[in-house]
């Protein structure tokens, strides 16, 4: 392997922006970050690569992302209403692959929330596949591998 790990600054800026939009429930803006064929995936098995044929916590195409954000912000879901906010940080960026039209990056994420008066923490690895187009960067794939995906999670009323 090479020790070269120069992650383009605009990629880090973009991932930070995405994290901030989610923490502040700016879901309409978040939906705009995606390509039409983009997939948002939170696998149950962090070793899995065939997401289409296995059970995931989330496997969202554009339509499911729209429905998920509508559910989280629509006021009809009692678990979503109960959530105040999340605070997450993303760091430890690594460039996995870059071409003229796309870039793959992995980073660490730690998300915190307060549920029923108790602080809960969700650490995980996040892998982004971003495409470069005329408007800048767009997400084609985001895979969130939670550290404790294999154990028993509690209610998740937010987007990782």
């Amino acid at each position: 392997m090479t020790s070269n790990n120069t992650v383009p600054a605009n990629v880090i800026d973009f991932i930070n922006l995405e994290a901030d939009l989610l923490d502040h429930k700016s879901y309409e803006d978040w939906l705009q970050l995606w390509t039409d064929d983009g997939l948002y995936i939170v696998p149950v098995d962090t070793q899995e690569t065939d997401f289409a044929n296995t059970v995931n916590f989330a496997y969202d195409d554009a339509e499911m992302r729209r429905l998920r954000t509508a559910r989280l912000s629509g006021g009809e879901s009692v678990s979503s209403v109960a959530l105040d906010k999340t605070v997450r940080s993303v760091s430890r960026f690594r460039l996995l692959e870059e071409t003229e039209t796309s870039v793959r990056v992995r980073c660490a994420m730690t998300l915190n929330e307060v549920r029923a008066g108790r602080l809960l923490t969700y650490p995980g690895d996040v892998e982004f596949e971003l495409v470069k187009d005329a408007q800048g960067l767009r997400i084609r794939k985001k895979v969130v591998r939670l550290l404790h995906a294999g154990s028993h999670l509690a209610t998740v009323a937010f987007i990782f």
Binding site: F57, A58, R68, V78, A154, T155, V156
Partner: peptide, 19 residues
């Protein structure tokens, strides 16, 4: 599987509200 994910589990559209 997709129908299962839609409702069930900690990130489903049903289970969290049951919980």
């Amino acid at each position: 599987i997709r129908l299962h994910e839609h409702f069930q589990g900690p990130m489903g559209f049903g289970t969290p509200d049951d919980s």
